[in-house]
């Protein structure tokens, strides 16, 4: 199977590795965060462990480690393995990006 890297074009899937659901957003808590410890732990726990087991279209992180070393966000159908779109992670190139653009 080939995956269309937005930078490299179509490449054999063996050049890529899969991380998982791209929808959870990493919570940021400073060491002096005013949030309660339970609240903080819950938020991070969800980020680290809670994933929907989607049968169908899903937004996923993929890494083009065997190519340009870009992190990518792919829309993929988990049932048919069809890739609907592949875009670059916000910090993949050198463009200025806002904080945690994803």
């Amino acid at each position: 199977m080939r995956i269309a890297c937005p930078f490299c074009g179509e490449r054999d899937s063996s050049e890529f590795s899969y991380l998982g659901d791209a929808s959870p957003k990493r919570p940021n808590f400073a060491v002096d965060s005013p949030n309660s410890p339970a609240e903080i732990e819950d938020a991070v726990f969800d980020y680290v462990y809670l994933r929907a087991n989607v049968a169908g279209d899903m937004r996923e992180y993929w890494y083009h480690g065997g190519g340009c070393r870009s992190w990518l966000i792919a829309e993929r159908n988990t049932v048919t393995h069809e890739f609907k779109s592949v875009t670059a992670a916000p910090g993949a190139g050198a463009a200025l990006a806002g904080q945690a653009g994803e």
Partner: peptide, 10 residues
């Protein structure tokens, strides 16, 4: 040009 993998290495 291409950055690719050959025998599992870049």
């Amino acid at each position: 040009a291409a950055s690719t993998a050959i025998d599992h290495t870049n």
